[in-house]
Amino acid sequence: MAEIIDLVLLGMLAITAFNIIFIKDLFTVVMLFGIYSFLSALIFVNLDAVDVAFTEAAVGAGISTVLMLGTLALTGRKEKASSHKTILPLLVVCVTGAALIYGTLDMPLFGDPDNPAHQHVAPRYIEDSPQEIGIPNMVTSVLASYRAFDTLGETAVVFAAAIGVLSLLGLPKRDRATIQSGLKSHLVLRVVAKMIIPLIVLFALYVQFHGDYGPGGGFQAGVIAAAALILYALVFGLPMATHVVPPRVLKALAALGVLIYAGTGVVSLFLSANFLDYSVLAEDPVAGQHIGIIAIELGVGITVFAAMLCIFYAFAGQTERKNIQ
């Protein structure tokens, strides 16, 4: 059954991607990309990767699509006909594809439990992490403890993206004069948004602190919390949103999250353990792991929330400026 679902979803993905190649209306392209992203999230669920699915849905279908739409608002929605020859790209793609197909010939069988990938390093994570780390979600254990250095890097990447977007676009100024903007005429939207936003924030907090037990964690929580404020900004206007969460604060928060994460690692250094070794944070190593994971997930959550919202502000600030002109 799972195989059939997999096949159907993959087929739908192929159709979506194929359409994206030929459609010239960029609004449609971006919408199709959102669909592509949602479909891949479904495939991830089907392949047992619930955390990944969660993130893909929040990021690919959520943040990326919003940013793309924001860009389209500034650059126009029609792709012009290309004067390029299409033969060379087609050739490059065919060669690359052929190489990949050649590579698949010796690939381990799909789903076979005896694959090398499941035999060497992974069993430790599956068998020992519930005892060593003390939390049931193995993805969180690996992400936040065994491979915490990757996740520190990932937080730095998000921070670097915020720095990049800020240096390119700058943040909107807080301006009290234009505070009454947004979708004034859409009463239903405003009322519903007011009811829904607190729930989204609540859900973000749940995802943040329940990531040890179920799917979720700092990254997903940060994106969801940012989404709540993005919704707020869309309905009530950017000036109102910057009034609630000022851009300067966001910039500082994005930096703070990275410092919390790296700082947790430095605390371990001072307790004469290796960088990011949480076992020394409490008398009982398992309790120490738990404290460490909560601390770094908090750092991730703060940076991701602040960076995503910062990036959104920067794009939205551009759109507003264009509208005024």
Binding site: A49, E56, V59, A117, L143, D150, E154
Partner: peptide
């Protein structure tokens, strides 16, 4: 259980 390691790698890669 399915293998958690690729999931972790891809979480990072998505970001």
């Amino acid at each position: 259980y399915s293998n958690p390691l690729p999931h972790v790698l891809i979480l990072t890669a998505i970001v």
